[in-house]
């Protein structure tokens, strides 16, 4: 499969305000995003995620390195015509209404006048803002701004969509809706580059991830190659057996309303606790084996660094 985005040896530094000291933000970033995948770009705050995105978009110029978008030089208008971008905490012209705003960006994409109205209304309904089309953006909530931001990123039916923290500031319902749109984009054959520090969302939708810490990529690959599938421990909730007796099998984490949550690290003891429950006619409410999560991997990697 061809690369939708390829970054090789990207370096970027800034001069500090007063002492003009050189601060290195990106220290040789290399990554490739395959066509049709959702790529998660993970990192703690200040790691260099947004700086990488700004380099890709030509908002800042790298000191060294090469960037290719859809096999085209990244600064070419042809490449820019085929991408969509949603910035973190999007700021837009707040005096425009939602449809005026989309119409303005349609003109920048040189979309035909006859198609602009249809495109605007389709996108507004895709992001659930059809009822707010004549509302000025200054009256929009943070979640609504995120949605209109996503709409402008999709105006030109981009092949590569770059999203910087698209789920930040959204309520659970809003996050689910945006997640669904991202998955839909993948189903339509588009490539999504998703920069975020909300691990659960990345874990749910991304095919591959790269973890950036202090301007360097320290881990990248398929999500399930990076995360160990080995069971770390099993959690079970039991009622009808005394806590003292359960302590022999594992750690009693909490006890409430006659139910005890037990964390069992030895796999053999899981079977034994099940036998005990059967013998004592106790009730098992849940039994969950826990494998390594993206969060474990992320926290482990960041701590190591």
């Amino acid at each position: 499969m061809e690369n939708a985005l390829k970054i090789t040896g990207l370096f970027k530094s800034f001069k500090s305000e007063f002492l003009r000291k050189n601060i290195e933000i990106l220290k040789g970033i290399s990554l490739s995003v395959k066509e049709g995948e959702i790529f998660g770009y993970l990192g703690p705050n200040g790691a260099g995620k947004t700086t990488t995105l700004k380099c890709i978009l030509g908002l800042i110029f790298p000191d060294k390195g090469k960037i290719e978008i859809l096999r085209l030089p990244y600064l070419s208008l042809k490449a820019k015509a085929r991408i969509g971008f949603l910035p973190e905490n999007p700021y837009f012209y707040d005096y425009l209404t939602a449809s005026e705003f989309l119409r303005f960006y349609c003109q920048l994409h040189q979309i035909k006048k006859a198609d602009i109205e249809e495109k605007t209304s389709t996108l507004l309904s895709l992001v659930g803002l059809e009822k707010s089309s004549s509302l000025q953006l200054r009256k929009f909530s943070k979640g609504m701004l995120q949605r209109i931001g996503l709409a402008q990123a999709l105006l030109n039916e981009p092949e590569l969509v770059l999203l910087d923290e698209p789920l930040g500031g959204l309520d659970p319902l809003g996050r689910k809706e945006i997640r669904d749109i991202i998955v839909r984009l993948k189903d339509e054959g588009k490539t999504v580059f998703l920069s975020s520090h909300i691990l659960q969302d990345i874990e749910m939708v991304c095919d591959r991830v790269a973890i950036i810490v202090s301007g360097q990529i320290i881990n990248q690959g398929r999500l399930y190659d990076l995360i160990s599938q080995k069971i770390l421990f099993t959690e079970t909730t039991i009622s009808g057996i005394k806590e003292e007796e359960l302590k022999r099998y594992g750690e009693c984490v909490s006890s409430y309303g006659g139910r005890t949550l037990v964390k069992i690290t030895d796999e053999k003891k899981v079977e034994k606790i099940l036998e005990l429950a059967h013998r004592k006619k106790a009730e098992i409410h849940s039994l969950v084996p826990r494998t390594e999560s993206l969060e474990d991997l992320f926290v482990g990697t960041v701590k190591q660094e």
Binding site: K54, L57, G58, L59, L77, K78, K80, A81, I83, F85, P87, N89, P90, Y91, F92, Y93, Y105, L108, H109, Q110, G149, Q152
Partner: peptide, 14 residues
């Protein structure tokens, strides 16, 4: 200052 330039310059304009 208002960062509106981010989305504007990400569009196909010089």
């Amino acid at each position: 200052d208002k960062k509106t330039i981010y989305t504007l310059l990400s569009k196909p304009i010089h």
